[in-house]
Design a protein around this nucleic acid. Structure first.
Length: 731
DNA sequence: TAGTCTGGGCTTTTT
DNA sequence: GCCCAGACTA
């Protein structure tokens, strides 16, 4: 087949070797911009075109729908170009872990404690449920925070720990254990699963049912995984269960780009893979095709400060390129103006398009200041962030209505919409309704529906009078929607709900905000129109599993604003990373945990390596984190970048305050290694007031050494070596 | 029952 | 500075 040549042309020897590697476990360790995704796409195409593998027997897993979509496009065009395939490869199984698991669960629902129609609860729903559990357990939600309990439950699930095996060593964990137990029961009575259950149930199904295991192994004898470093325990277990014997498991990843630890991801799965599959072939991709050498050098300088990783040498033949620009703004507004101004200047020459530019930040909240500047200037931009849209109150309300229509047992949704907009159903009535539901052993939604059918008989225990009328009216609405559910196109169904509840006049209260909320509703209807074909179930699933990255579109030639997390896997000719301040990047929350601090560093590394040609690092002198604005210190990561890669570009001084600040931080004359390291992690030290402790982390910061010390009595402290006068005891 | 108020809590990243 | 939950009042 001459087409094989096309599939391998233009690839470097390492890439080629990985793509043509014999079937079996394969690990591709790939630096940023080294053509990781390309290798994956070529591998798929090569298997199909060269080895005659049936497309439907391949399962490729990614972390976002966007990545899956892109991969599909690439594979299809590769195969089309090579003349091997003409029809679109609809049979190719390319999806996210969660979407794949959801499909599996629906197909095998008869072995699950939920029905095929289960709904997927998102984080807000989960918290609502946890809140309910705590209430039942008579726990004050102020003492034990529902969000924290939810997080604990979630990470337990990601570790495949179920309520029965949940270890309760502390008071908090005992509460969490009981809440977890009740939480699972409540999920079932809602006919719902949460994000984590998707994976957990999938793993359990395959563990417990030999026949299913065989079935899926036969179905997908070839498995490929993107961003393998971001798999968590449940995902890894799922892969192992799916991988047949002999396993044909092709995984690509980069431990340096692991940024989802907080979601249970464990980059040590890369090592685990090598241990579990000692016969695995490993390929290393180091040549970078994306960035200039200057950008790569900066990235390496940042990541090399990380201990306990194996060093990669990133190189390119793109040449040195332009120095990285470091800019200090006075405050967030000026930060925004600087970004806008720079983009305007650079694009004015015509070589760079607006859409080539990206602005990246640590937290979503940071986008606000930038957006304001752009809005005021009438300059268009693209904002990446699905959560922002789907997390809005009005959108969540609508989704809850739809979920209720789809699944009247969904109590969380039911309670959300029962009195939204207000229709005279107050707390007392709700309480009575819940009680009646408990007595009748059915969900309150079902109870209401039944009430209509057999009249007052089932309504025992429900309040009479005004609220009864309100309840009956709501029940009639519900009944109407459920009846219309299967006959009406999705968008029409939504329109009908909107009309029935007169949602528009509820939202439009004359304020600009109300106007905006209604706009969002209309936007939501537009999205639903695209799902007319596939119907309500698929739409709800789409809405539940959407990710921020999925909202990125190329439709508009405008700069993109996105979080560093959302930026993973993307590239832009021109990148701004803003908010390079202590407390922002690295984030405050990471300060007392070396593992988390390491992840902040990797996050910065991911950001740097998104840039192809130009990189702008921006920080702010005054910043509002919470409450009043305070003076921020420059990010510790900045001092890891060698000065010769940087170009100073400071705004003119505006205030004496700033001028004095600039005198203190002279980037251009800063020598990168001014101070000699005196401390190492693991050293025992003594401090005058804090007593004895162990150095957790020591790093050179400008002309001082910054230490993180765990003191026996005083806890973890951050100290500047020159002030702290520490005595070294041993080490 | 609904709407307003206040006080407290809290701040990350997202499938 | 912002948001939410629960308390309070009409």
């Amino acid at each position: 087949m001459p087409s094989n040549m096309d599939l391998l042309s233009g690839l470097n020897p390492q890439q080629r070797a990985a793509i043509t590697a014999p079937s079996g476990p394969v690990l591709v360790l790939a630096g940023p911009g080294s053509g990781k995704t390309r290798v994956l796409a070529h591998r798929i195409a090569y298997q199909i075109a060269h080895h005659g593998v049936a497309p439907e027997s391949l399962l490729a897993v990614t972390f976002t729908n966007r990545a899956a979509r892109e991969m599909r496009g690439r594979v299809e065009s590769l195969l089309a170009d090579s003349g091997a395939f003409r029809t679109p490869l609809i049979k190719l199984n390319l999806s996210t872990f969660h979407a794949f698991a959801a499909r599996l669960l629906r197909r095998e629902a008869d072995r699950l404690p939920v029905t095929r129609e289960f709904v997927i609860f998102d984080e807000a729903d989960q918290q609502a449920l946890v809140r309910q559990c705590l209430k039942e357990l008579n726990i004050d939600p102020k003492q034990v925070r529902p969000a924290k309990v939810q997080a604990v439950i979630s990470s337990a699930k990601n570790e495949l720990i179920e309520p029965e095996t949940f270890a309760a060593g502390t008071y908090f964990h005992e509460i969490a254990r009981r809440a977890y137990q009740r939480y699972q029961q409540l999920l079932l009575s809602n006919n719902a699963v949460d994000f984590d259950d998707l994976l957990l149930y999938a793993v359990r199904l395959l563990q417990e049912h030999e026949d299913l295991r065989q079935k899926y192994r036969r179905m997908f004898p070839h498995i490929l995984v993107d961003e393998f470093q971001d798999t968590n325990t449940a995902q890894y277990a799922l892969l192992q269960l799916l991988a047949g014997d002999p396993p044909d498991l092709f995984v690509v990843g980069d431990a340096d780009q692991s940024i989802y630890r907080w979601r249970g991801a464990d980059y040590r799965n890369v090592q685990r893979f090598e241990e579990d599959y000692p016969q695995a072939h490993t390929y290393l991709l180091e040549q970078n095709y994306r960035s200039t050498q200057t950008i790569l050098d900066a990235a390496m300088a940042v990541i090399d400060r990380q201990r306990g990783r194996h060093k990669k040498q990133l190189f390119t033949d793109r040449g040195r390129g332009t120095p990285i620009v470091l800019h200090e703004a006075y405050d967030e507004a000026e930060e925004g103006r600087y970004v806008l101004q720079t983009i305007t200047e650079l694009t004015a020459r015509g070589r760079i398009r607006q859409g080539d530019c990206a602005v990246m930040y640590r937290t979503n909240a940071q986008s606000r200041a930038i957006e304001e500047v752009f809005l005021k200037a009438g300059h268009p931009y693209r904002l990446v962030g699905a959560q922002r849209f789907y997390g809005r109150r009005e959108v969540k309300d609508l989704i809850a209505y739809l979920r209720l229509v789809h699944n009247p047992s969904d109590q969380v949704s039911f309670l959300r919409v029962l009195n939204t907009p207000p229709r005279g159903i107050g707390a007392k009535t709700v309480e009575a309704l819940l009680e009646a539901g408990r007595n009748a052993q059915i969900s309150p939604g079902q109870l209401l529906l039944r009430l209509l059918q057999d009249g007052a008989a089932a309504g025992k225990g429900l309040p009479a009078g005004r609220s009864a009328a309100a309840l009956a009216q709501f029940a009639r609405l519900m009944e109407g929607w459920v009846a219309a559910r299967d006959n009406l196109p999705l968008a029409d169904l939504i329109q009908r709900v909107l009309r029935d509840i007169d949602y528009r006049s509820y939202l439009e209260d004359g304020t600009e905000e109300g106007e905006e909320r209604w706009e969002n509703v209309l936007e939501f209807v537009r999205v639903a129109e695209d799902y007319a074909e596939v119907g309500l179930v698929a739409f709800l699933e789409y809405v539940a599993l959407i990710s921020d990255q999925d909202t990125l579109s190329d439709a508009q030639d405008a700069p993109t604003f996105l979080t560093l997390h959302a930026a993973k896997g993307l590239e832009f000719p021109l990148v701004f990373i803003i908010g390079l301040d202590e407390g922002v990047l690295p984030h405050l929350r990471a300060a007392d945990d070396p593992e988390e601090m390491a992840e902040e560093r990797r996050l910065f590394y991911v950001g740097i390596t998104r840039a192809m040609d130009r990189l702008f690092l921006v920080r702010t002198f005054r910043r509002r984190l919470a409450g009043p604005s305070t003076v921020a210190d420059p990010s510790r990561f900045l001092s890891d970048i060698p000065a010769d890669l940087l170009e100073g570009d400071r705004a003119p001084s505006r205030t004496p305050e700033q001028a004095s600040f600039e005198r203190r931080t002279r980037w251009e004359d800063r020598s990168p290694r001014a101070a000699q390291p005196r401390f190492r992690s693991g050293m025992r030290v003594r401090h005058r007031t804090f007593g004895e402790g162990i150095v957790l982390e020591a790093k050179i910061l400008r002309d001082d050494e910054e230490l993180t010390v765990e003191f026996e009595g005083a806890g973890t402290k951050h100290l500047a070596a020159s002030f702290a006068s520490l005595e070294v005891l041993e080490g």
